[in-house]
Design a protein around this nucleic acid. Structure first.
Lengths: 157, 157
DNA sequence: CTTACGGCCGTAGTCAGCTACGGAGTCAAC
DNA sequence: GTTGACTCCGTAGCTGACTACGGCCGTAAG
């Protein structure tokens, strides 16, 4: 079961040029070129590419994906543990935030369906857990008091 | 409680230039300039900015954030319901994926802590649920059979 | 054996999302 | 009434993540 780069691209749903780009960045390996001249790839490569794409849609930058992939080899267990724990915290926070967004969205959709009149932008409110002044902020251009801590998200750093 | 743009930037942890950029993109409003000449902002603006940043770290593009924010005004209930339901599905999928990443990471960290030898890149495996050939792919450069469906993530589109 | 599809490789262009800069105006403090 | 921090506004530059292009070469089908 070997692929040329084109077939690999199909199998993993990642463009050829993107694969090359990942190779240049060191995210995926470049199998050595046999004397003749065409590299061959395997299913593991396709898996890895799919993984990269997935991780990206979950909000990880390619650098972070690199980190994650670096955990894979089982060596440097000490380091892997540290990094893994770190990412784990990030992942858990994201899950929590997404859950509150989910709740808010579900509620809003429900309100809409019941035509229950005024929908009160629960979205913004949903991410204000940290700022514990619990009143739902008005969404339009008008002032309120609230504020507090914000976790300074490092945005794909 | 009014802010100048600089104070707003501090309060929301978003750079002044970024705020202006968002204004240009229409993500946040620009309060009208009083005759004299300096715009004033309120707490709602800070909330909105914090929301935008949060939503970004959750993997939404500014366009998507726009969509989400457009739901806030309570008008167009029909449309809001549709859009809301759509985003809800996306959010739920992301949560599910993050959960399996979480599980994988937790397991790996546990293995490392117990020094249980070989860590078997459960990360890649964790995102292979879709491809239902259940064997854990080796992470290094070697072939395997597996594959199947992939959900073609639209990557912040 | 030739022809055409695809791989190889380097470089350049694109798009989103900022980030920086420069010059003019504003406003509060001294 | 001048200084200095800040606002306003337009435009230019930067980074991350691709995406496209072009020229050369390999290899498989007819």
């Amino acid at each position: 079961m070997t692929y040329t780069i084109g077939r690999l691209a199909e199998a993993s749903d990642v463009h050829v040029e993107t694969i090359r780009y990942y190779q240049r960045r060191g995210l995926v390996g470049e199998p050595s070129k046999p004397p003749g001249g065409i590299r061959r790839y395997g299913e593991a490569d396709a898996d890895r590419l799919r993984f990269i794409k997935q991780a990206q849609t979950l909000g990880f930058s390619l650098n972070e994906v690199s980190d994650l992939l670096a955990l894979e080899d089982g060596r440097h267990c000490r380091e892997a543990e540290r990094l893994g724990a770190e990412k784990l915290a990030v992942v858990r926070e994201r899950i929590a935030q997404l859950r509150s967004v989910e709740k808010a969205l579900a509620k809003m959709v429900g309100q809409c369906r019941n035509n229950a009149g005024k929908v009160h932008c629960p979205l913004i409110a949903s991410l204000e857990r940290d700022a514990k002044s619990a009143t739902v902020p008005s969404c339009n251009h008008r002032e309120r008091q609230a504020s507090g801590v914000r976790p300074r998200p490092s945005r794909y750093g």
